[in-house]
């Protein structure tokens, strides 16, 4: 991005925007709409490093709220791609119930991905993270669960890893969002992800929902990870190098 000033929506409009009570009683699309209007009110110059731009180096997710939204979008792309591949595979040992539930989850993640894409495109025009490509070579999509002798993850192992990561990511990113409306949207998505986690964990080990490696035993609070911690883990499956260092900053 050049130094020439141009008007774009702000990453972090002041909290004093009139977004509160009247709006939060409506549906989540209302928040998104209201936010677009509110942010449009605060026109500022865009900072040099806040755009996701593909260059020779890592792809930055961006700064401020658009960075957080791109971060969520990257994770939803990852999950959606994974479950689409599960849906297209024949997993040995999957029950009819499990096949149907994984198809459900696949739909949810595709909807999350496309919702975020549309929201970012609308509120932060030109700053959408590009579509990512993924490498799932370490996952055996024909196996339900990894056997001790296997080198690749089974579908349930990978699903648990992705869902755990996604929930911990949303848990850590919520407070980075400056616009409350985005917080509500993130909340509407993360609780569905948390339901996925509980479902998949119980398939692996009955009764292992909300176990101590997911919910801190001392506090009863769910696990949380920072954007850079999450991307470091997710990077193993993403072909493009991602840089989450400015997310929410």
């Amino acid at each position: 991005m050049s130094d020439t000033s141009r008007s774009v929506v702000s990453d972090s409009p002041p909290l004093a925007q009139p977004l509160y009570a009247p709006i939060k009683r409506r549906s989540f699309f209302m928040y998104a709409g209201a936010t677009a209007g509110a942010t449009a009110l605060a026109l500022v110059g865009c900072s040099k490093e806040s755009d996701p731009v593909v260059t020779d180096g890592p792809t930055s997710l961006g700064a401020g709220d658009v960075g957080v939204l791109n971060y969520a979008y990257a994770l939803e792309q990852l999950e959606a791609a994974f479950y689409a591949k599960v849906k297209a595979s024949t997993v040995a040992g999957f029950t009819a119930d499990e096949t149907a539930y994984f198809a459900d989850i696949s739909d949810h993640e595709a909807i999350h991905r496309d919702f975020l894409k549309a929201a970012i495109s609308r509120d932060f025009s030109g700053r959408l993270l590009p579509e990512l490509t993924f490498n799932f070579d370490t996952i055996d999509f024909t196996k339900r669960v990894k056997a001790a002798s296997d080198t690749k993850l089974g579908v349930l192992d990978a699903a648990k890893a992705f869902e755990d990561l996604g929930v911990a990511a949303y848990n850590g990113a919520g407070k980075l969002l400056k616009v409350p409306a985005y917080l509500v949207i993130a909340g509407q998505i993360v609780s569905v992800e948390a339901r996925h986690v509980a479902y998949i964990r119980n398939l692996l080990v009955p009764g292992s929902f909300a176990a101590d490696d997911q919910v801190e035993p001392a506090s009863g609070l769910d696990k949380t990870l920072s954007p850079t911690e999450v991307i470091a883990i997710a990077q193993a499956f993403v072909v493009q190098q991602l840089d989450a260092s400015s997310v929410g900053q």
């Binding site: 848990n171 909340g187 609780s191 992800e193 339901r195 929902f209 009863g220 769910d222 696990k223």
Partner: peptide, 10 residues
Amino acid sequence: LRIHAVEAQH
């Protein structure tokens, strides 16, 4: 927010 995710798992 972290409690919120726990409630969803419950």
